[in-house]
Amino acid sequence: MLTGLLTPPLPEELKTAVSLLVAFVLATLIGAERQYRQRTAGLRTAVLVAVGASAFVNLGIRLTGPDRGVKTVAYVISGIGFLGAGVIMKEGMNVRGLNTAATLWCSASVGAFAGADLQLEACLVTGAVLACNTLLRPLVNAIDRAPLREDQTEATYEVQVTTAPSEAGPAQDLLVERLEAASYPVSNLVIEERGGNAINVVATLMASTVNAGELDAVIAELSRAPGIRHATWAIQNSD
């Protein structure tokens, strides 16, 4: 009791300053790693997200109290979701920026903890984020380099044949027939213009796993068929 009387609580303004400073410092650690990796959202973005989250959470708590301040945290989470969507880019079948968006989301959580005067928790989240983006990188690289058979993956498979425009109809029928005979039904079939009096007939398989030897056999058979200039198959990784 005597200690509490001798050390009065900090003014609210000073608490806010401490929260913003903690959010700034911790987000700098997260953003510096992103900047070093030359990611789309780097140092300044991570710091701004954390400081902004800290400011809004602190403001919500000061205006409405700790209980109703939870609503402010919910609004921060949804708002960061829209911001993160801006750094996600889709290039064909590939999606880039998911890790950067997730890092921004985590930076906001660091700021939210700091804004709620939970400084230790903010430090713990920062350490976890840095560990995910640094310590897990060698494991990710090792997994990516590990050989994996096609029948052990779940992906989108395409079989393509090249033929003359006048042979498009028979080529489609032959492609579907050979794939179904090999127990690989087709989910989609498109014709792509190549120019130079040639077209591609592309069949997307319904199967998400295949046997490479079976598809190679189908390709070899299609390559020998009359009117087929070239045949191949390709894999597009799923998310």
Rank of each mutant, 00 (worst) to 15 (best):
A164M: 10
T100W: 12
G169N: 09
T28R: 02
G79K: 04
A116R: 06
S223Q: 15
L120Q: 08
F113I: 06
N211K: 13
I88R: 03
I61H: 13
E33W: 05
A112V: 14
L135W: 02
E150K: 03
V57H: 08
G86E: 10
V18S: 02
N188W: 12
R229N: 13
N237D: 07
L189S: 03
A23K: 06
K71F: 15
G79L: 06
T162H: 14
H230N: 14
G227R: 01
Q35A: 12
L174I: 04
F82Q: 08
T153I: 11
A128I: 10
I61V: 15
C132P: 00
L83A: 07
D117E: 14
V140M: 01
L130T: 01
A41S: 12
P66G: 06
I191R: 09
A41K: 04
M89V: 15
A164P: 08
Y157R: 05
L205N: 10
T126Q: 04
P11N: 08
L26R: 06
G84Q: 09
R34P: 00
A102N: 04
L130I: 11
L14I: 13
G65A: 14
S109L: 04
A23C: 05
L135Y: 00
V57G: 07
A55R: 09
L124Q: 04
Y157Q: 05
L205W: 03
A53Q: 09
A231G: 06
R145C: 01
G127Q: 07
V70R: 12
V87L: 01
G81F: 05
I88K: 02
P9V: 07
R149A: 12
T134D: 01
R62D: 15
